[in-house]
């Protein structure tokens, strides 16, 4: 555990708190993509199957349970909560997320480090996480004025990915035989997807006006 990894995990946690806060406090999920949230739920389930048979640390296990719980809570609110579900902008959330799932599965079957059931599912979760933000980014473009909490949620998610890259650089330079090419390439692609959003987020923040993605 290093400071970049810890900061990355805490930023990830904070992003989920911000999103849940927005949904619970405003009783609205306007501007939030249910497809992205469902993809994250799939990502966490397929990646954290190892909760059942491998133990790394209490910290890891607790975080896994928290991430799983928050992902399913968010999906529950957006799809089933009697008030919140009516605020979901279905017509703005049209990205074909099934293609992302299928593409990630094909890629995981072709490129993985060990051809076993759990390893392929874990690899699938890495590939799917890399692209899971796409429905949300497309939806932001269509939403027009983006509220602060939604904008901050996406910003924190991007920060979390950036901090993980710093964590890998740190680990690679301090640990012997630390090497995880699949995770690195996917993570760099994932972070790059936020570049456009970051540009407009910082620009609007600097000019002190409401976030709009052209």
């Amino acid at each position: 555990m290093n400071v970049f990894r810890l900061a990355g995990d805490l930023t990830h946690l904070l992003s989920l708190v911000v999103l849940l806060l927005k949904i619970v406090a405003t009783k609205s999920c306007r501007g939030v993509s249910a497809k992205t949230q469902e993809l994250y739920a799939i990502v966490f389930v397929t990646r954290y199957l190892d909760l059942l048979f491998s133990f790394v640390s209490l910290y890891n296990s607790v975080m896994k349970v928290v991430f799983l719980g928050s992902a399913f809570s968010i999906v529950y609110f957006m799809r089933y909560h009697k008030v919140v579900r009516h605020t979901y902008d279905r017509e703005l959330d049209t990205f074909r997320s099934s293609f992302l799932v299928a593409g990630s599965m094909v890629l995981a079957l072709l490129i993985n480090s060990k051809y076993t059931f759990f390893e392929v599912l874990w690899t699938f979760s890495i590939y799917l996480e890399a692209v899971a933000i796409l429905p949300q980014l497309v939806m932001l473009q269509r939403t027009g004025n983006i509220d602060n909490l939604t904008g901050n949620y996406v910003f924190l998610l991007g920060m979390y990915r950036g901090l993980y890259i710093l964590n890998w650089i740190y680990r690679y330079s301090t640990e012997r035989r630390y090497w995880q090419m699949i995770v690195w390439v996917s993570g760099i692609i994932q972070t790059a997807l936020y570049a456009d959003f970051f540009y407009y987020y910082l620009k609007c923040w600097n000019e002190n006006r409401t976030l709009v993605i052209p």
């Binding site: 990894r5 640390s57 896994k64 035989r177 090497w179 995880q180």
Partner: peptide
């Protein structure tokens, strides 16, 4: 790739 296979990140 042993280190990577331990999946110690989240």
């Amino acid at each position: 790739d042993e280190q990577g296979r331990k999946h110690d990140e989240l």
